[in-house]
Design a protein around this nucleic acid. Structure first.
Lengths: 343, 343
DNA sequence: GTTAGCACTCTTGGATAGCGAGTGCTAATT
DNA sequence: AATTAGCACTCGCTATCCAAGAGTGCTAAC
């Protein structure tokens, strides 16, 4: 479909545009020397490429810029093969350094990723899918307040403070917590609500006087939806990109970034491995002007999180893709080591 | 120092400028009717006000805008007396609704505050100053990993996951945790490091074989500096303000907002009650173009947090001040009720 | 198939002029 | 003595125009 030369021209244009964000003219390409043909020849090919939808003009006598279809072709046919190297060591060093806190490493990764690329990085914390309940603790603060702490096998901790109404007997609550620990420890967190209903209720009826209220209470206390944690890095970095020359664009972008739950659902839907969605390919209206590159990392079987970079469609695809590959591999490996060595 | 009329003029100009963000001319004031004098008279007074430093011109033939000194005068002499009403109920309703989670109410307050004002709100979580240790829990995840959970009497939970090196005997760690709970429960969190050194070390030497390592470990595990939590609301809201017409200003603002620790230290330094710092009065370079209004709320004796609104110097001082007054009172009261009723 | 040449298009930046809002001053009015 | 009307002057803002520059598309020549 595309001649050898046309492909080359497309590549040069995209590379150049990614760097400068300015439309590229035939003369400029010719002078660069990468393609040993005259401006006129290149001009003809460019006209063809435009006709086929890989290039666009901003106005009738401007240079060409890549269309989304052009980027797509570039990502699929051209950028795929190349791997970056220089960033690799930064990432590896980052992960190597001490690793006591999962959250720290993730937050740090998000920041470094953004710093390295000047795009916005978003890391979705591991989903609790296959996380298992390790233990529940209830600690009474005052006769009528308590904090319930839920610990998973991955070391994740959730807690919730609540008031104990006077109708409820604190010792009932304690009994209940014991029952839960005894019967549900080791169960996947995600199935807790269900198990709670099926297994625990009957148990409790035996042991407790005032069942209903206690039940309702504990239920809301720790079955409330547990938000997936989102680590966002360098929201201000992306504003360095020349496409944000317009105040209005910044506003819409930032407003979008504040809707963390939407972003989370978006990232959850990604497939395994590297994933590139360009402009209009994105289903979410708000990022139809952006490209989103995602990569998954795994903690344990079935348990995975997502690393993403959000930038303008004019993105350094080659570099970003290899960067995400390295990072997600390193994260997977680091986490694997952590579990296997210690487990 | 200022005549009655000059004060009135200053007030009208500031009120008007706060609303429109455009320089105000003498004719406009005269036509408004609030001041029954001709434009020329007002013009003379305005010249005086400028000479005294309360007003400025953007250029030689523009209308006047308030100077920072002008705002200061306004805040001290004019805005002080007035109290807003309409927002009051929103705040009260907000706080009234269920109150299980301290964090939730704070985050929500931050968002509402920003929504109501279109400034950026920052709430500093309560300092741990006088918070007391309730209990420490250690839960082993695998033979070589554990999570240490620290619970305070206010229901605040800190946790830290760490690896147990093979040199350390897990049962030693457990002993240690018991010792800590036994001896330090009820002690102020802030003095834990010190108490740890003075009281616990001797205890531990008696009971444990491999003291040194265990000690070092637990120490880093929960004496690491506990960051004060910062709740920021509506970073994108403030961009609605016309002073953010410039992309560069947005960039610097956002870059500043990402430095959470700096903001935290800034807010920690505030005195009790309402505090208004206007423009250059701010010590931190980055917000010398902004005004910061802070208010404190208290949890328990000695324990307090800060609510702040950050906006352009052209701020709705009257409204914001009364808003913060109401909110901090409501928060103080709600927290007070929570403790006393349940404690 | 490739290239040189040329007319045409469109953006960008600088220069200029006119308009409007506002001031400062002076002289007249109360 | 305080207030006001009148008027010249200043400055920013906008529109318009112009020239330069970059790039295209097409045609004709190589």
């Amino acid at each position: 479909m595309l001649t050898e030369r046309q492909m080359l021209i497309l590549q040069v244009i995209i590379d150049e545009f990614i760097e400068t964000a300015h439309p590229i003219g035939s003369r400029a390409i010719s002078k660069k020397g990468t393609i040993p043909y005259s401006a006129a020849t290149i001009r003809n090919d460019m006209a063809d490429l435009e006709e086929k939808g890989f290039l666009e003009k901003t106005h009738s006598s401007s240079g060409r810029i890549p269309s989304e279809k052009g980027y797509r072709y570039y990502v699929d046919h051209i950028a795929a093969s190349i791997s970056g190297q220089s960033d690799e060591y930064i990432i590896k060093d980052l992960i190597q350094d001490g690793f006591y806190e999962f959250e720290q490493i993730v937050q740090l990764s998000a920041e470094v990723l953004s710093e390295l690329t000047n795009y916005t990085s978003i890391i979705l914390g591991p989903e609790m899918m296959e996380t298992k309940l390790k233990q529940i603790q209830m600690i009474t603060l005052t006769p009528h307040t308590a904090v319930v702490i839920l610990v998973t096998n991955t070391g994740h901790v959730e807690h919730r403070t609540f008031t104990i109404p006077s109708e409820i007997n604190p010792s009932d609550l304690e009994k209940m917590v014991n029952i839960i620990n005894h019967h549900l420890a080791g169960s996947p967190v995600i199935s807790l609500p269900e198990l709670f209903n099926s297994e625990i209720i009957s148990m409790m009826k035996k042991y407790m006087d005032d069942f209903d209220q206690t039940y309702q209470y504990l239920k809301t206390a720790f079955l409330a939806e547990q938000p997936v944690k989102l680590y966002i890095g360098g929201v201000s970095n992306i504003l360095m990109q020349p496409e944000f020359n317009d105040v209005e664009k910044i506003r819409t972008f930032l407003t979008m970034m504040e809707k963390e739950d939407e972003i989370a659902t978006l990232l959850k839907q990604t497939d395994d491995g590297i994933n590139v969605t360009i402009g209009q390919e994105n289903e979410v209206e708000a990022i139809k002007d952006f490209s989103l590159i995602t990569s998954t990392y795994r903690l344990d079987e079935g348990q995975h999180g997502t690393i993403a970079l959000l930038g303008p469609t004019r993105m350094e695809y080659k570099r970003v893709i290899s960067l995400l590959k390295v990072l997600s591999n390193e994260m997977t490996e680091a986490l694997y080591m952590w579990y296997k060595n210690n487990g």
